[in-house]
Simulated assay, not measured.
Amino acid sequence: MNAVAEHASPAAGASRIGGRLELDGLRRSFGAYNALAGIDIAIEPGEFIALLGPSGCGKSTALNCIAGLLELTGGEIRLGGRRIDQLEPEKRGFGMVFQSYALFPHMSVRKNVGFGLAMQGIKGPEAEKRIRDALAMVRLESQADKLPGQLSGGQQQRVAIARAIVIRPPIVLMDEPLSNLDAKLRLEMRAEIRAIHDQIGSTTIYVTHDQDEALSLADRIVVMSQGHIQQVGTPEELYQRPVNLTVADFMGFRTRMPGRIVSVAGDEAEIEVDGSRFHGLARETLKVGDRAVLAIRPEDLVASATGPGIAATVVSIEYRGRAFFGLARTAAGAELYFRADEPLLRGSSAYLAPAPRRALIFREDVA
């Protein structure tokens, strides 16, 4: 297949625009509500970027602004140094994959995939070859003459991806494309989406609220909250070193224990929580006496029946293959998500302690 080589020579028109994508002070308001409050980021050609955050954080709004489906309230979008935010969506030459697939139900798979080519005026043998290559890339050659309604959800999503890449876009935009699939298909499609990205060489911007998707797919992750970018970094950077509690929440630090700093040494601090003291990595400048929060993932908060650790009562527990995971509650009402190597009875007492150098400590006023 020559799809990769051919991708370097996109169709005539705006799809020839390529290069670095720059979002400069992007703003989008809906009345008094600021969905985007000044977004700045540069995305290099061929990068896979995940926009990660909760519903309403602005990630889909940002994607729709890049696509041209929403006008900007302020700021600029540049591609290869050329301003494109004033171009109509079809003149930007981007491919887009929607959560709902957005396929034409009365058209065959082949015609759905070729729709964008027809809009660009590409017909005949050239269009047929591109459609054939795109269907081969998503492994749907044998389904070309079927209608979307005759396909499974995963197959329909593959058609949507083929339709987005067949025009050889400089940028592919994906808005939570896997959210309608079951867990097994989501895992399979993750691998396929990344493989297709690597094969075609386009920049991919992928919206998700799922940290596992972002971690497994992206070269860099952009964590958003309330229209602002909280942190940009590689999956490893965000997983190991979230800059604040908002980012830590999306990186799986479900347990937060408020307390007070009792000592600081280099990048480590000691915090007293409910009468117990724990060490953690300080993610901000801390001093003795500061109110702070110890944050930790469930797999790194180990529960035992005898201690040491914070005393709590087991509320729920479930077996997940190699270990047990559960929820415990302290006498003060704090909820702690933990891991245990042995089953603990609901209602029993347990002692929970963070694994060494796996807990992070943030100032309380950052929450």
Score class of each variant (00 low, 15 high):
Glu335Asn: 14
Phe94Gly: 01
Ala292Gln: 12
Leu345Val: 15
Leu238Tyr: 11
Arg132Ala: 12
Gln157Met: 07
Ser316Trp: 06
Arg283Ser: 08
Ala37Leu: 01
Arg329Lys: 12
Arg132Gly: 07
Val109Met: 05
Gly326Leu: 01
Lys91Leu: 00
Gly154His: 11
Ala14Asp: 11
Arg132Pro: 02
Val366Asn: 14
Val113Trp: 07
Ile77Thr: 03
Met174Ala: 04
Ala305Leu: 14
His106Leu: 08
Phe278His: 11
Glu76Asp: 15
Ile261Glu: 01
Pro356Asn: 09
Ala164Gly: 00
Met137Glu: 09
Glu299Ser: 14
Arg346Tyr: 02
Ala353Val: 14
Val273Ile: 12
Asp300Tyr: 13
Ile122Thr: 10
Lys111Leu: 12
Glu76Gln: 13
Ile205Ser: 02
Ala334Gly: 02
Thr203Ala: 10
Asn64Glu: 06
Ala340Tyr: 03
Gly309Arg: 06
Ser316His: 07
Ser225Phe: 12
Glu188Pro: 03
Val247Arg: 00
Met174Pro: 00
Val262Lys: 10
Gly333Asn: 06
Asp210Asn: 13
Arg130Trp: 09
Ser142Gln: 15
His279Asn: 14
Gln143Ala: 15
Met119Leu: 14
Ala183His: 05
Ser349Thr: 12
Val273Ser: 00
Val264Pro: 06
Gly201Asn: 04
Arg194Met: 05
Ala42Leu: 05
Ala334Glu: 14
Tyr337Val: 01
Ala323Glu: 14
Glu126Ala: 15
Met224Ala: 10
Thr208Met: 06
Gly326Lys: 01
Arg16Pro: 03
Gln156His: 11
Glu76Ser: 15
Leu52Lys: 02
Arg132Tyr: 10
Leu345Ile: 13
Lys111Arg: 15
Gly31Asn: 09
Gly46Pro: 06
Gly201Ser: 08
Ile49Ser: 07
Pro298Trp: 07
Ala67Tyr: 04
Leu286Ile: 08
Gln143Pro: 02
Arg186Trp: 10
Asp198Phe: 00
Pro354His: 11
Arg256Asn: 09
Gly233Pro: 12
Arg363Glu: 00
Ser202Val: 05
Val4Gln: 15
Gly309Asp: 06
Ala118Pro: 00
Ile171Lys: 02
Ala295Lys: 07
Leu217Glu: 03
Gly68Glu: 09
Ala35Cys: 03
Leu294Glu: 09
Tyr351Ala: 03
His228Trp: 01
Val159Arg: 02
Gly124Tyr: 10
Lys111Trp: 07
Ser9Phe: 15
Thr330Cys: 08
Ser29Ala: 15
Ala8Asp: 13
Val315Leu: 11
Arg297Val: 07
Arg322His: 14
Leu281Gln: 13
Gly347Asp: 12
Asp198Met: 13
Ile165Leu: 08
Ala144Val: 01
Ala195Met: 12
Met1Leu: 08
Phe362Asn: 00
Ser276Leu: 03
Asp249Gly: 13
Gly19Asn: 07
Ala295Ile: 09
Leu215Val: 14
Val288Lys: 13
Gly227Lys: 08
Ile221Tyr: 04
Val166Ile: 03
Gln226Ser: 13
Arg277Thr: 11
Met107Trp: 07
Glu318Tyr: 05
Ala292Met: 10
Val247Cys: 02
Ile41Leu: 15
Leu178Lys: 05
Pro177Met: 03
Thr285Pro: 04
Ala160Leu: 04
Glu335Gly: 04
Pro169Gly: 00
Ile193Phe: 08
